[in-house]
């Protein structure tokens, strides 16, 4: 091969490089044609189906993710709604309890007020009654005493002054003993 090349080079067989050999044109077309049909039949369908499957897989994944997202959003909204409801309910219950508590306190206060008034009234009445009783009994006793004293004074009136004074003294002593007996009793 080398020697032939050297031969060609040194002999200077000039062949115009622009003039083609028809065999080369034919061979090129045949070889390229075979390659073209092989690529068309075996390579391109493989690649294209891979691309299509991949696109489909990605789009399917995206769709699935979107539906999951929507589901999650709905759930979140629902939970938030429930939470808000619960808060509202709690606030309502608290308010109610406060009102109830205030009502109870007011009622208790009123009852206590009434009770104390009742007790005070009762005491007043009792005191008044006892006072009346005391006044009555005092009046009766003082009357009796005065009557007794007057009788004695009248009974021994004119005897003498000494007697007179004795009577008074006796009366007073009786009074004292009666008082002492009352104290002892």
């Amino acid at each position: 091969m080398k020697s032939l090349l050297i031969l060609a080079a040194t002999e200077g067989e000039e062949h115009n490089p622009l003039i083609p050999l028809w065999e080369e044109i034919a061979i090129s077309l045949v070889v390229f044609g075979i390659l073209f049909f092989a690529v068309k039949k075996f390579v391109v369908p493989n690649f294209e189906s891979t691309f299509a499957e991949r696109t489909q897989a990605i789009e399917g994944g995206i769709a699935a993710a979107e539906s999951k997202q929507a589901e999650a959003d709905a759930k979140l909204a629902e939970l938030e709604q429930q939470l808000a409801d619960a808060r509202h309910e709690a606030a309502r219950i608290r308010e109610e309890a406060r009102e109830q508590g205030a009502a109870i306190v007011a009622e208790m206060r009123e009852q206590a007020q009434a009770e104390s008034t009742r007790i005070v009234d009762h005491a007043h009445t009792q005191i008044e009654a006892e006072r009346q009783q005391a006044i009555t009994s005092l009046r009766a006793e003082v009357g009796a005493l005065a009557t007794g004293l007057a009788g004695r004074i009248v009974g021994e009136s004119l005897e003498d002054d000494a007697r007179q004074s004795r009577v008074v003294e006796r009366f007073l002593a009786e009074l004292e003993t009666a008082d002492a007996a009352g104290e002892n009793a």
């Binding site: 490089p17 622009l18 065999e23 080369e24 044109i25 090129s28 390229f32």
Partner: peptide
């Protein structure tokens, strides 16, 4: 080789 380029260009 010109022939081979001609072939593809002609095609």
């Amino acid at each position: 080789r010109a022939g081979m380029a001609y072939a593809l260009a002609g095609l």
